[in-house]
Computed example of a mutant assay.
Amino acid sequence: MKEQNHGKLKRDFKSLYRKILLASVVVAIVGIALIYFMVDPSLSAFKANEPDTEIVDMPVEDDFDKIENGIHSRTGFIDAPGMTETIQNCTNCHSSKLVIQNRMNAERWKTTIKWMQETQNLWDLGENEAVIINYLVTNYPPKKVGRRAVLTDIEWYQLEE
């Protein structure tokens, strides 16, 4: 009787082992396929031969550095000396809007650049550092306002209880 139970237990174990092995192989194949498609979806062998909408929607080369009303269309930077250097060095890592909103004096820009170099892997800007700082201080100087404007011309009313 023990031998029968032992044999049945052994068969059940082999069956369970095969099922686990099969499930592991399926999970591995699905995982590899997902990684394959996430790395570069255009590599898919199942993709239809349709034009890539990302390429179609990209700006025309002529519009890439277009200036309208003194503003660089793509970034929103003011067209002035140092704009190109600022675009090339600042917008590689973050949006131009982040640069524009941080209105600082030259000393604070130098401190911020040093911090980015020490902690964010910003490269040495070399001669471009002075050009960029001058561009930012000239075109986006610190605003001398408080946190918010004082409320004026407000029509106050009483809340009914």
Rank of each mutant, 00 (worst) to 15 (best):
E161M: 01
T53Q: 12
S44K: 01
I113C: 05
F13S: 11
L16E: 06
R148L: 08
D57Q: 10
L136G: 09
E107N: 14
Q117R: 15
K144T: 11
F77V: 07
M104A: 07
E118M: 12
K66R: 15
R103N: 01
D12H: 09
H72P: 04
L98I: 03
Y157D: 04
P59K: 15
S95F: 03
N49R: 09
R74N: 14
K114V: 10
V27G: 09
L98R: 04
Q120S: 13
D63S: 10
K144N: 13
F64Y: 11
L43W: 04
D62R: 11
T75A: 04
V25L: 15
K14N: 11
N92L: 12
L159S: 05
P59D: 07
D63C: 00
E3Q: 13
I100N: 02
A33Q: 06
F64T: 09
E107R: 08
F13W: 11
W109I: 07
R103I: 01
T119Q: 14
T152W: 08
H94Q: 06
N128W: 00
S42R: 09
E155W: 04
L22I: 10
R147V: 05
G31P: 00
I55R: 14
L16G: 06
R147H: 03
E3P: 05
R74I: 08
M83Y: 08
E118D: 15
N121M: 10
H94E: 01
V99Q: 13
Y157Q: 05
N134P: 11
E3V: 03
A80Y: 13
K97L: 14
G82T: 06
D52T: 03
M116S: 13
A28N: 02
I132M: 08
M104L: 15
E50K: 07
K143E: 12
S24F: 02
T86W: 02
N128F: 05
N69Q: 12
T91Q: 05
L9T: 00
A80W: 05
S15F: 05
N121G: 07
V60L: 10
I133C: 01
L125C: 09
L125S: 12
I133L: 04
E160W: 03
P41A: 01
N5I: 08
P59L: 11
L21T: 08
H72S: 13
Y135T: 11
H94F: 03
E68Y: 14
D153I: 02
